[in-house]
């Protein structure tokens, strides 16, 4: 705890609100990771934390350090931009891999591949199957 005591009240309140909002949004997203049923639904969940969660916590950090050092501290923008660019790429690659595995597995089981799209995400039905 060094430095925070010197924050003026408005900055402290703003930082606190941003922090709590960001952390709450991130937690809701991560809860979705546990609560949603199939893999393709679960992929939606962490994007909450990487979009709004990151933006709010980076904003809190920006407000806090800008006021403390009485100059514009903007380098948290880098984390926001980095997160906004990298997360969709990682998730798209991951979904591609999952889709490939589903199709390959069904081909192995001798089921019709059809439009090569797992409409019911069959992999999740066989829970507990060792990977």
């Amino acid at each position: 705890m060094n430095g925070i005591e010197h924050l003026p009240p408005w900055a402290a309140v703003l930082t606190a609100v941003f922090l709590l909002t960001g952390a709450a949004v991130t937690l809701i997203g991560s809860l979705g990771l546990l609560r949603l049923g199939t893999f393709y639904e679960r992929v939606h969940a962490p994007t909450l934390g990487t979009t709004l969660g990151t933006v709010f916590i980076a904003a809190a950090s920006m407000v806090c350090f800008s006021v403390l050092e009485s100059r514009a501290v903007l380098h948290e923008i880098l984390i926001v931009v980095l997160g906004a660019v990298t997360t969709p790429i990682a998730l798209t690659v991951l979904v591609g891999a999952a889709r490939f595995r589903d199709t390959a597995e069904r081909a192995q089981l001798g089921e019709p591949v059809g439009r090569a799209l797992p409409h019911a995400a069959p992999g999740d039905a066989s829970a507990g199957k060792a990977d």
Binding site: V43, H44, T50, A84, P88, I89, T92, V95, R99, L117
Partner: peptide, 25 residues
């Protein structure tokens, strides 16, 4: 792909270049 995937609720799954068909979840 980046726009669709980074928006929560929609997800880029596959793009079939021959048919020009995009699949999203």
């Amino acid at each position: 792909a980046c726009i669709i995937t980074s928006t929560p609720g929609t997800l880029w799954v596959n793009f079939d270049a021959q048919r020009g068909a995009l699949t999203i979840h």
